[in-house]
Design a protein around this nucleic acid. Sequence first.
DNA 1: GTCTATACTTCGATAGAC
DNA 2: GTCTATCGAAGTATAGAC
Lengths: 176, 176
Amino acid sequence: MTATERSTRDRLLDAFETLLVTAGSRAATLDAVAAQAETSKGGLLYHFHSKDELVEGMLDRLRSQGAADAARMKTAKQGPVDYYLTTSVNSGSDFDRALIAAGRIAQESDSRATAALADLRNGWFTVLREHLDDEALARTIQLIGDGLYFDDTTGLAEKSAVKHVRTILRRLDVLP
Amino acid sequence: MTATERSTRDRLLDAFETLLVTAGSRAATLDAVAAQAETSKGGLLYHFHSKDELVEGMLDRLRSQGAADAARMKTAKQGPVDYYLTTSVNSGSDFDRALIAAGRIAQESDSRATAALADLRNGWFTVLREHLDDEALARTIQLIGDGLYFDDTTGLAEKSAVKHVRTILRRLDVLP
DNA sequence: GTCTATACTTCGATAGAC
DNA sequence: GTCTATCGAAGTATAGAC
C-alpha cells in the first residue's frame, strides 16, 4: 500500500461527506455512500455497523481536523483574522467538506453534530477574542465568517464578498 | 369557516415547513406532513399531487411573503439596516419558518429553492445598497445577516450577537 | 476484509370507497 | 374533499459465502 492510497474506511467517510455536501442528507444513503466509495454495502457495514456509526466516525475525524485548524489560525503569518476570513470561504479542502457535511447532519437536529460544531466555533472565537481583545469585534467577525460559509454552502456565494469585508475591516483598523 | 381557521392547503404547507425546520428534510415525509397537519396522506395528495408540488407551493408562498418583507424593510421606522438585522434573527414568524424551510430544500441542490432564495437576498441587498450608498458596507452587513440567520438555524446562536453587531455598526457610523 | 443475497421497514404514489 | 388500502421502489440492516 502506497502513501497516496486512502484506506477503505477513509474513502467511506469521504464518500459520505461528499454526498452530504453535494446532494444533501436525503441522498446520502448507505447504497449511495458505498457506490461513491467504490465498494459494497457489505463492505461499508463491516467498517461502520450502522448509519449512526458513520456519523460518529465523520464527527471524530472533524474534531481532529478542527483542532489542527485552530492551531494554524493562531500562528498564521497573515494573522488570525485574515486566516479566518480566507478559510471561511469553501476552498474545497477536506476540512471544508467535513465542516459542511457536519452542518447538514446538525440540521437533522442531531445533538452530537451540533455539539461538535459549537466546539469548533468556540475554538475560533477564542483565538479571535484573544487576538483582538474586543468582544463585539470578535463576535461580528465570526458572524461575517458564518455568513461567508453559509452563502457558500447554499449556492448563494458572491465572488467579491471577501474583498468587501476586507475593505470594511480596514476601516475598523483590524486589517492593515 | 371563521377568519382564524387556516385552509387545509395552508395547514399542509405549514406542517411541511415546520418539519423541515425542526427535523430536517429526511423527516419531512408525506406521512409525517399529513400527520402534522392532522389530515391523511390522501388528503395531502389531493391538494399537492406530488412532493414536488408541495415544494413549489411552499416556494410560491415564500416569494409573496418575501416581496412584502422587502417593502416593509424599505420603509421601516428604524431604518433598513436595523430592520434587516432584527429580522435576520429567527423570531419564529411564518416568514422566518418559510425562509429556513426553503434553505433546507436548497441544500438538496434544488435549483428552484436556490433561485427563490437568491431573489430574496437580491431584494434585501438592493435596499441596503440604496440606503447606504456603499457597496462594501452593504455586502458586509448582508453577510452579518446571513451569519445571524445561519447560527439560528443550526442551533449555534449567541444571544448577545445582535447587540455586538450594533456596537460595531455604530463605530462605522451606520447606526446612531 | 469484502462480497451477495435477503429480510424488514418506510417512502412516494395510485385506486377507489365514502 | 378526505379517507383507507395497497403497490413498487428504495431505505437500513443481517446472514453467510468467499
